[in-house]
Amino acid sequence: MHFLSRTQVIVALGALGMALLVLELVRRRRLSEEYSFLWLVSTALIAILGFSTPLLTWITRVLGFLGESSTVFAAGLAFLTATLLYVSVRLSRLGYENHALTRELALLRHEVERLRGPGAPGGAPGAAGPGPAGRGPEAS
């Protein structure tokens, strides 16, 4: 019992620190509310598991794990896997959106060059501008 109570202190501090970090990241707009939800829920879950010994013992027995720590690790791993999958999905979507924007940008740039007409800086045919027009954000 004594060992577990020390664990409880560690878990409590860890969960509290994690929650504060997540909230602070949201406050500074470094993390969107959408993702913070994921992290806060998982932190709360781990905290509950680590704190309530009877609950943890019960789950461990029901699932047939050898020790309580295995349950906590399993929960953490499951959460990480789910998060990674979710992030992959979001990344794929971002990639698609990025592709579409790049295509649209190319079409619009061409249209701008055409409207400006030849001779204008970055204009279409015959323009001897330095490098391909608009290769970077500095081009105007």
Partner: peptide, 29 residues
């Protein structure tokens, strides 16, 4: 892009490399 412009051809330039599929899609649009 310059070679194409010098040849008097309209050029659409992707800011980053998308791959053959992306280039064709731009062409279709």
């Amino acid at each position: 892009a310059e070679v194409a412009r010098a040849a008097g051809t309209p050029v659409l330039s992707h800011a980053v490399n998308l791959g053959v599929g992306g280039a064709l899609q731009t062409g279709f649009r």
